[in-house]
Design a protein around this nucleic acid. Sequence first.
DNA 1: ACAATTAACGAAAGCGCTTTCGATGAAGAG
DNA 2: CTCTTCATCGAAAGCGCTTTCGTTAATTGT
Lengths: 341, 341
Amino acid sequence: MVTIYDLAKRTGFSSTTVSKALNNYTDVSQKTKQKILDAAAEMGYLPNAHAQSLSTKKSWTIGVMFAEDNEVGLKHPFFSALIESFRKYVEREGYDLIFASRNLRNRDTSYLEHFLYRAVDGIVVICSDPHDPQVQDMINSHLPIVVIDMSNQNCSVVYSDNIEGGRLAVKHLHSLGHTRIAHISGDPSIDAGAQRIKGFTKGMDEQNLPILDGYLVNGGMFSIEEGKAAMEKLLALETIPTAVFIAGDHMAIGAMEAIKEKGLRIPEDISIIGYDDIEMSSYLTPKLTTVRQDTDRIGARAGQLLMKQIIQKKKLLSTEVIPVELIIRESCTMVKKEKKK
Amino acid sequence: MVTIYDLAKRTGFSSTTVSKALNNYTDVSQKTKQKILDAAAEMGYLPNAHAQSLSTKKSWTIGVMFAEDNEVGLKHPFFSALIESFRKYVEREGYDLIFASRNLRNRDTSYLEHFLYRAVDGIVVICSDPHDPQVQDMINSHLPIVVIDMSNQNCSVVYSDNIEGGRLAVKHLHSLGHTRIAHISGDPSIDAGAQRIKGFTKGMDEQNLPILDGYLVNGGMFSIEEGKAAMEKLLALETIPTAVFIAGDHMAIGAMEAIKEKGLRIPEDISIIGYDDIEMSSYLTPKLTTVRQDTDRIGARAGQLLMKQIIQKKKLLSTEVIPVELIIRESCTMVKKEKKK
DNA sequence: ACAATTAACGAAAGCGCTTTCGATGAAGAG
DNA sequence: CTCTTCATCGAAAGCGCTTTCGTTAATTGT
């Protein structure tokens, strides 16, 4: 490994001057700077990030934590899309991402401790349980942080306009003539779940539609299986809904399974509208109508907010709501005329 | 930030002894060790990774590079599943993952340089172009490395049994009575693409089936769009195949689109068999029969291979082939009886 | 001509930790 | 009661880099 001392020896200058030349200090002449740069290129010099960080207290890394409770981790398409766009943004600013765990070699630590250990410049937490004490610890720490998909926190936050999303969904359904609209929700303990419920009820209110008994079922943690189970509950009702708004595309997929197994057709018998617009939604049969979350913008905005805090060296409280968009595909149709008895 | 010096001051021992106590050296008595540990806990001491790495030359990080040529990055479900299982494995051993870019603050560097700069203990490269000079550079470096989904390299390598996968696919198709079998391949410049072609032709050979003119079409870089385009070529043929083996599930999805748009049915008119078994494959209509790659095993094995090299402090050449499994679902059926003229 | 700037460079301390090697006293051997 | 052997501990150097502050020589002003 070639160090600045090697460059110093080679060029005849001191290590101080070498360091300065490398870092564009003004008190080194153009000539010597060029000599040093040449030597660096020639000898294949590369700075050592650890030494640099140790002395500057800046690591140019950002710690990322995402929910692994549900064991999907990176595999969830929504999460990974978010991380990807976040990564692209901070990368341009010179930051690398580090995925830490809760175990520090042998002993186990908290995420916060791990990030402190790694001396990250900032933290991004994605889609986690708002009540997770680990998340709270990080928020309460002095480290710059931005959390995605969680509302009402004591820190910088960015998330989709979930309420509007819910409204949009029922509005669309109502415009198609539906009145018996059900909602398979995400768990209300998750902010996204709670907000979409709020959006749903708000929308129903606006259209003067009643929420029938049993028409609001908790789909839990957004998984396919839970979505299926929730739909089955709906299907077991005396009068089943003509349309259902489902708080996540994964759950919608499960719901579609349940409907098909029951021998019903989508959208002829039941209209379905999902949430997220993950990639596969447009390849389902029928193609899923859904409300799209703008992962690109969410991720980028989160990156931006974090950068800002890092630069200003202070935690900023701000909450950013990213607009959603209704993507109309094939899973919703006009309500069937009810036969008059 | 509390350092070992703070602990030293607090306990009355030297920083040397503190360090030793923290690192389980044998030449510190049980009593003093306990005192130091207590003080550490009490004062909330955390080691500083950078200082540690600087002095030990070990960073407990692994650099990950994955193909971003195709701009999918983390978003491809196969990639992210791989990374996820890899991460789980190395995490247990105490390593963190770092996603580096090609730009080092202002100036741009190669991946290798960036990893050198970060002083990672090892590198994992996932699903990249085998001819990428960047990858070659890393392979030729002294850093421990394992590459996934690339064959025949001068380093440790793990990939699926693509040849067997191809064989399995045509064997299955043949067992259903198909003879006019086509293959939409991945680009042959990608190892996975080339090998699956080999498996396909091998399988056809074994069943004494001819590969008809135009029945082997290059689907390119495995995207949905390319799969669709490739299928359209097949559909434009004079006599279209009764079954097609497609080298990736994404391409298969595109192919299914093309078939449906043409007004043909799957599997009644054309049987389809994919490759990968990404999550959405089991939720398509019809559910996709496909060759499953064992991402869990691939990722874990890659982790294992990398750990081994790091521990032994030498690069190991080994190539690990992970078995694949045929997942039979609904997209293949018995061939229709040809009408006799 | 001389003092006052300014430009260019380097010594040295410090970042937090590890590790070698020597020092010390206590315990065991004879 | 000496001599060796352990068991504990600490001084100090080193990892590679940054940054403050002082020094020297060249430049400017008058």
